[in-house]
């Protein structure tokens, strides 16, 4: 009975994360996109908490705390601050329309389950869905990075890919060795990207974070 509840909770969090990813693809405004990202991070933290509680691996609690502090609070605040400061256009620039993107996301989920099928057939029941879902979130994040043209949306795509990755890492392996260090490193890296390149450089030389300016270097 206990195991059944855990399994359902783990699956629930994973599915909610996937849902926020799909919703992020369908968003056309910048602020809701950032909110969706922090919501997804809340679910990731919840997932980490459940896994840590049931498996008794105490270092996953650290990851849960790290996610809550950095991805739920600090990074969205920072992104919003930058947006306010440099007047980013509130609309998201799409190179593929919403229906097309949603269709592509659906296809990504399908592909993920197809790829993951031979792997999960031999696995224990608790993690069965998590591998496929984390792969879907990574692919959808990649899709967002490819089809959204602004630097901020590219960063959010990367952050969502990371969320998918850590979902996989927590659920599949109950936290592999060094996972906390890697997670901390990743978060620090993204913070440095945001502070270092965005706020300072791009702002200074172009007065906008629209990456469509990033199309100068060509053959």
């Amino acid at each position: 009975m206990d195991q059944l509840i855990t399994m359902n909770l783990v699956d629930l969090c994973a599915v909610l994360m996937l849902l926020t990813s799909v919703m992020a693809v369908a968003t056309t405004r910048m602020k809701p996109l950032i909110t969706l990202f922090s919501l997804q991070s809340v679910f990731l933290a919840a997932e980490a908490f459940i896994v840590a509680y049931t498996s008794g691996e105490s270092h996953i609690y650290i990851m849960c705390g790290l996610t809550l502090a950095l991805k739920v609070v600090v990074m969205p605040k920072m992104l919003l601050y930058i947006m306010g400061k440099i007047h980013v256009d509130k609309e998201i620039d799409l190179s593929i329309g919403i229906p097309g993107s949603l269709l592509a996301s659906g296809f990504m989920i399908f592909v993920s389950y197809y790829i993951a099928e031979p792997l999960i057939s031999t696995m224990e029941t608790v993690e069965r869905n998590c591998l496929a879902i984390s792969l879907s979130i990574i692919l959808i994040g990649l899709l967002m990075m490819c089809t959204r043209r602004k630097a901020i949306t590219e960063t959010i795509g990367l952050l969502m890919m990371e969320n998918g990755l850590f979902l996989g890492a927590i659920a599949l392996s109950h936290g592999m060795p060094l996972i906390v260090e890697i997670a901390a490193f990743f978060d620090v890296m993204v913070v440095i990207i945001i502070i270092g390149i965005f706020a300072n450089r791009i702002n200074k030389s172009f007065n906008s974070v629209d990456t469509s300016f990033l199309r100068r270097l060509k053959e």
Partner: peptide
């Protein structure tokens, strides 16, 4: 801090 260098670093 030229525009092209920032673009290269970003990519």
């Amino acid at each position: 801090s030229r525009e092209e260098s920032t673009e290269a670093a970003w990519k």
